[in-house]
Amino acid sequence: MIDLSVEFCGVKFQNPIVLASGVLGVTGDSLAGVVRNGAGGATTKSLWPYQHEGHKNPTMFGTEEYFMNAVGIPDAGPEKAREEILRYREKCGAPLIANIVGGKMEDYAEIAAMAAEMKPDVIEVNISCPNVEDELGKPMACSVSKSAEVTRLVKEKVGDIPVTVKLSPNAPDIRAIAESVLDAGADAVTAINTLGPGLAIDIDAGAPILSNRVGGISGPALKPLAVKAVYDIYAARKCPIIGTGGVITGRDAIEMMMAGATLVGVGTAVYYRGQEVFGEIVREMNEWCVENGVSKISSLIGKIHA
């Protein structure tokens, strides 16, 4: 028997695969479904302190190499989030990560306090969505001082719930941002959010495909950037990291762990392999461990740095 469990900021996960934010996470039952399909834990969609409209369709599309989305983080607000999280708890014992977002600094403090009341196991702070630029914008995810300030605001409100800050690959020096949020009290970081935004034009329509015109890039093309980001952050701090970006297979997940990830976020893989992907990735990781004589998966974390 391979021990697939990992401990992340004191929280035990049965396996390192967690659902990334914004994919399938609208309802408590769908989050529980992801765990039933094999994930070690799940992340909610980004929660706002108020109701927030998303973008019109088309909001996403995929190709063999990459995926693009601009959903615009629609959300019914904290009342509904509370209900869905309760429902998840009724159905599911696996750890839940509540992802929060805001338009202004004060929003983060507000939603952090609300989210803490919902008692998630971890709070993930999204400072890095490239699709709601007007409101929170790139400056925050790319600014050392602003990232640190958001982290402090959130930490003040959430008691002893561990906080991970989700970073953007758009920052010129992601390691510097990671260090600033860790110094400001973050317990961990999540790397990375989508890249870009990029633009795709339908030449027959003579129009951008996405209604938001531009959208964040995820999927296979993102993986080398994500692995490098995790590698750089781990090299600097050896902190707990949720490595996210382009993980499609068990081998990808192990690669992410070797770079320094404790947990591995999986989002776009659902597009390529369906909802069953979580269990399949875990099975593939298990097989690789058997073949390679690894008895505890946690021994792989940061292995490349040795």
Binding site: V26, G33, T59, V71, T268, Y271, G274
Partner: peptide
Amino acid sequence: MKCGMGLCGNCCLDGEGAP
């Protein structure tokens, strides 16, 4: 429905919670 491809999660039916 938004995406039609099982990602956005908007169309999930309570119970199994599948899209």
